[in-house]
Computed example of a mutant assay.
Amino acid sequence: MRTGAAKHSPRAHRSSPTFVSLTGPAGNIGDALIRRGTLDWARDTSDVLVAYVGEAPDAWLEQLGVPADAIVLRSKRSVPRWLWMLATAPRHPVLIFEAGEIPLDRGNEVRELVFLAETAIVRLKGGVVMRPPRGIRAPTALPLWLHRQAARLSQIALWRDAASAAAIGSPSIAPDIGFVAGVRAGRPWADRDELIISLRGARPLPDDAWVQAVRATAAAGGLRIRTVVQVREDEERARELAALLDGEFEPWGDTDALAQEALLRERYDGARLVLSDRMHVLVLAALSGAAPAELVPHPTRKISDAFATIGLTAVSCDASTTDAEGMAAFLRTQLRRGTETAECVREAVERLTALEADVRETIRAARS
């Protein structure tokens, strides 16, 4: 990867660049999943790709598959260079923001003002601004207003849930970009023999009623319980859950992120039910044909709203207001939704494929 400014590369003068933001922690496979999807939409839109990756290590670039000839900008110290490259780019640059959750609580005013300025610069140059499917978190007045103006200036701005779209005043709702990771056939339903769990380490341990419900569901379905790690900080929680449930614990350990992702997808291929409060655990599980379920106290609407976008409703249950039998009934219901899940995922992938085609046509038209 090149790390110098564009003025040192003769190629930068022959093509208007595509700028793409790809920040994220290397220990979160879900974040890598959606950044990789964003990068895939940016590929081949220019022979000059400029990627801002924040503080990410080289392993993150490998995990995403950032091209070796990309101009990579790191750390907040490179933000002025990023802005200068945008301001001095030839006509018709492309700016692609990263997918994911957008915090709009107090303290994000300056960041949103910078993003609005970036958007305005690109549009004034006759370029294209694209915001892939995103979700809004904790909106407050000024950051939301700034974000709304930037979204309206963008040719393509997509939202992964109806609440986020409504906050912006946009009709453009789309599946989470994580669904572009690829549908997998997985094992035949009758041969799937695992109930897989991956929960956030920051939450309290589940209570006895939750443990009873999960045990009963696994026993009734003849399923082995396995706990896995898709975010490094959740590893100890996975160990604790395996002990509580007499399940098998599968650590992340020293495995590199790409190998861990491949292993997890193999595990989801053999699962009937995957239980998590991590959205992209459930996205990958659904892509493998497993039924997704969120069963935690006071779940946020992040997962339920994003899955409702693809037509799969009622994937979440509030464990704080449900007894053991109610939780077990919820899990039994989810276990009967394998075919429904597969159909919703198929339609989501088709929708995202069409959206990528729209993005590429918008860029082509702007540069023609």
Score class of each variant (00 low, 15 high):
V274S: 02
M327H: 00
F307Y: 07
H298M: 11
V283M: 06
A293G: 09
A314N: 15
A293E: 05
P299G: 07
S320F: 07
G311L: 07
V283H: 01
L264M: 14
T322Q: 06
F307C: 03
A328S: 13
R267M: 11
V296E: 04
L331E: 03
V283D: 04
V281I: 08
A290E: 02
R278K: 13
D318P: 14
L312W: 07
Y268C: 08
D318N: 15
S316R: 00
G326S: 12
H298L: 12
R265D: 13
Y268S: 13
S288Q: 06
D269S: 15
R265L: 12
S288W: 00
S316H: 02
A306D: 10
Y268L: 10
F330I: 08
R332L: 10
S276L: 10
A291E: 05
F330A: 04
H280P: 05
V283C: 01
F307V: 08
I303Q: 02
Y268G: 05
G326M: 13
F307E: 03
M327V: 03
L275T: 03
D305F: 02
P292C: 10
R267W: 09
D305Y: 01
L295F: 09
T313S: 14
S320K: 11
T300H: 13
A291L: 10
D269A: 13
V315R: 00
V283R: 00
C317H: 08
G289M: 02
H280Q: 14
D323R: 08
T309S: 14
A328N: 09
S304M: 08
V283L: 04
A329K: 08
D323Y: 11
G289P: 03
T322M: 09
M327E: 02
R267T: 02
A328R: 14
A329Y: 00
P297K: 04
P297V: 03
A271G: 09
T309P: 07
H280D: 10
P299S: 06
S320V: 05
A319E: 04
E266K: 14
A306K: 00
S320D: 14
A271F: 07
L284C: 12
R278N: 07
S320H: 15
S288K: 01
D318L: 09
M279Q: 11
A324Y: 04
S320P: 10
A319T: 03
T313V: 13
D323M: 15
G270A: 15
I310S: 00
F330H: 08
V315C: 12
C317S: 13
L264Q: 06
A328K: 06
D323Q: 09
A324M: 07
V283Q: 00
V274L: 09
R272Q: 15
R278D: 07
H280F: 06
S276Q: 09
D269Y: 02
A290I: 04
E294P: 04
E266P: 01
A285D: 09
V296G: 00
D277L: 02
F307A: 06
T309M: 12
M327Q: 12
R301T: 15
G311H: 05
M279P: 10
